[in-house]
Amino acid sequence: MRFFKTMTTNLPTRFQFKIFVNLIRAMFPNWNFFDRIAYGFELEFKVKNSYKWERISFDQKRLPLGLFISPNCSMALAQVNILEHFARDIQELQAIKTEIHSKDLEDLTTFKMLRSILRVKLNESGFEDKVIQFKIVACDQVEKIDVYISDWIILGPI
């Protein structure tokens, strides 16, 4: 009884069932693999005083024992997934709000994770500028569409 009380003390009043279902969605199989070949998503950034957008690469090399374990590849796939989730979050926000403010997006978990991805990727490549702008680009074989362009953000240290 005491354990149950401890578990539920200060239960957040902001519990959202939809997020709960999302967190445990792996328990409810969905076998729609690669059904719709819609847009792929790319992450690009630029620095101040530059007009050139540079693409963040998630490319990987195949390891000899990669069939057994391939941590870098699995992580890269998970990072690309974050881009797709962010694009989906934007679409969902657009569906429920007529006007979206920067704060609405910056509060998203996927935005925070994207920001971290940028911090990591730019740090890995020895990039020194800490103030950047980034965008998510939806691509297919015919066109590229800017889904989202951020404000100038300070990446901060890792």
Partner: peptide, 16 residues
Amino acid sequence: NLKGDLEKGLPLSNSL
């Protein structure tokens, strides 16, 4: 980064 989703999505106390 994940705190927001976890606290909104799990019926557990924040400390747990």
